[in-house]
């Protein structure tokens, strides 16, 4: 009896799990689970944003100097790249919902992954690597520059937050790429139908969340310090 149930479960193409009454209930549970996970994530990043805000108000001058060490052009490009990736993610869900060929779903997913990879490449190769070369990576030969005056430690603190925040964000991106890989495999096996696309949907929620975090990070890290204000420096 129970063996049969196990067999049925493994052979079940819809991925229906035994503890649920029906697929509808299972899908609802999946969606709710992801929303609660995102609530956790908000508090996770919230703790860091709070710390950042407090220190920025304590050391405004040093944080301005720190912000000017970052390259806005890469930050801006990456913002655009991520927004596009959210669009392609949404399109992949849309194509599953409307019953497009699995090639279409896979196409949008891979496009999303490429955009995500582009983001990481720009971030690591042209930002982090250069920061390391210029000795402004805390803990890895950070050197105070004379023009910072006594602000050195606080500039280092800004850079610390920069690497911590963008590093954790990048970690979330990498996890996201892993999830997308699984989705591509599932799509290739023809698992998604107009009835069943919950994995796509909740992965999409995650991906959009990671994008939104960046939307907050970009101005907080790159655009402060009166860089573009009319009466600024």
């Amino acid at each position: 009896m129970s063996d049969l149930a196990v067999h049925e479960h493994e052979a079940n193409p819809t991925g229906f799990a035994h503890q649920f009454e029906d697929l509808e209930q299972q899908h609802d549970a999946g969606r709710l689970g992801m929303w609660i996970f995102l609530a956790t994530e908000i508090l996770f990043f919230g703790g860091m944003f709070t710390s950042y805000t407090i220190y920025r108000s304590l050391h405004p001058a040093a944080f301005d100097i720190g912000s000017h060490l970052l390259e806005v052009k890469f930050g801006a490009t990456n913002t655009a790249v991520l927004i596009c990736s959210s669009l392609t993610m949404a399109l992949s869900i849309h194509s599953a919902q409307t019953g497009k060929r699995k090639g279409t779903i896979i196409g949008w997913l891979i496009f999303t992954m490429l955009l995500g990879a582009t983001f990481l490449f720009l971030k690591f190769r042209f930002e982090w690597y250069h920061d390391w070369l210029e000795h402004i990576m805390p803990g890895f030969g950070f050197v105070y520059r004379p023009e910072w005056g006594a602000n050195g430690p606080q500039v280092q603190m800004f850079m610390c937050f920069y690497f911590f925040l963008t590093g954790l964000h990048a970690l979330h991106m990498i996890v996201g790429l892993g999830i997308l890989t699984v989705l591509v495999i599932m799509a290739a096996r023809g698992r998604f139908t107009t009835q069943y696309y919950v994995p796509l949907e909740i992965s999409g929620l995650y991906w959009h969340f990671v994008d939104i975090v960046w939307i907050f990070l970009f101005p907080l890290l790159y655009l402060i310090g009166g860089r573009y204000s009319t009466g600024g420096h």
């Binding site: 703790g47 805390p138 610390c160």
Partner: peptide, 19 residues
């Protein structure tokens, strides 16, 4: 998640000796 981030910051300060 808040204690998680707090302990991460603590670890960061301890490992990298940043303020």
């Amino acid at each position: 998640p808040v204690i998680a981030v707090t302990l991460l910051l603590l670890g960061l300060e301890r490992i990298l000796h940043v303020g």
